[in-house]
């Protein structure tokens, strides 16, 4: 469905994506994580055909993506997207005018659930509501692939919860591939099915969320016991306090023991451990 083949994207002397390859072949919610400047937005824009890759190829349903050959299947929403300053009803109508697959009923239903005032002009909305309106246009677009770049930026916690519920519901109703880039990690973890982690323009990890649940955990106890139990395992981070040691592991499970405790690692801790640099010792 989506294929990145050795994509490199340079902005002058800065390389945003470096020999990036990835294949996505089934619908679902994909969580795209990376630190600031890791290349997340560049990746999404390249897929949407908004910027060209310096080298390599991107295909959607086996068709090459280009600036003048933007894939019909893809809808990209970025933070702070400029829209026509018209009433939201008119904005939805405008979206329907250029996209025959636009689902007006769905858009109005979502707007009602999000308590969006459809009589307001776009510029009269708060920052969060503007983001919501743009995201609703994407969700109602009927496109197969939705790229949401920081969609919940500016949302309050209640709105974020409603948003993720709706995203989940929407994907359950019609099979859609949604790639969500966000920094609010633990909330996306509840709905995401696949995880893509990008670091310095390169693919760091692409796996199922269940795999993370299974393989990412922390081991805490006396330093010598923890060190012995985790020897040979992939340690992605550690903290020390007195004689106690906590190690964050991404590997097979250790055997249970009363000498140390094993607990699940949140996606945020896992992400920080994975891309936050070398093992962190406090």
């Amino acid at each position: 469905m989506i294929s990145f083949q050795s994509i490199t994207k340079d902005y002058g002397k800065i390389t945003a994506l470096r020999d990036f390859s990835l294949n996505i072949d089934r619908p679902g919610i994909y969580c795209l994580l990376g630190r600031n400047g890791a290349g997340k937005t560049t990746l999404l824009k390249t897929l949407a055909g908004h910027i060209p890759a310096t080298s390599g190829a991107v295909t959607v349903n086996d068709k090459p993506v280009g600036m003048m050959a933007m894939p019909e299947e893809v809808f990209f929403v970025e933070t702070g997207a400029a829209q026509f300053n018209i009433r939201l009803t008119s904005l939805f109508a405008a979206a329907a005018r250029i996209n025959p697959a636009f689902d007006m009923d769905f858009a109005f239903e979502m707007a009602r659930r999000f308590e969006l005032d459809l009589t307001k002009r776009f510029k009269q909305l708060s920052f969060g509501m503007k983001a919501m309106a743009s995201t609703l246009i994407a969700l109602s677009s009927g496109r197969e692939i939705l790229l949401l770049d920081e969609p919940v930026l500016g949302f309050d916690p209640v709105m974020r919860k409603v948003f993720y519920d709706l995203l989940h519901e929407s994907c359950a109703q019609k099979p859609t591939t949604v790639i969500v880039s966000t920094h609010i990690i633990d909330e996306i973890a509840k709905v995401a099915e696949q995880l893509i982690i990008i670091e310095k323009g390169q693919l760091k990890l692409f796996c199922d969320m269940n795999e993370v649940d299974e393989k990412a955990y922390s081991v805490t106890g006396l330093a010598e016991h923890v060190a012995a139990a985790t020897e040979g395992l992939r340690v992605i981070g550690e903290t020390k306090a007195g004689g106690f040691l906590s190690r964050y592991i991404y590997d097979r499970r250790v055997e249970t023991s009363d000498k140390y405790s094993v607990s699940a690692l949140s996606l945020q801790d896992f992400f920080i451990g994975l891309v936050g640099g070398e093992k962190e010792v406090m």
Binding site: M70, E72, A82, Q83, F84, I98, N99, F102, I137
Partner: peptide
């Protein structure tokens, strides 16, 4: 604005 509504360059 047209791009944000899902328009294409072509």
């Amino acid at each position: 604005k047209l791009m944000h509504l899902g328009g294409k360059r072509l």
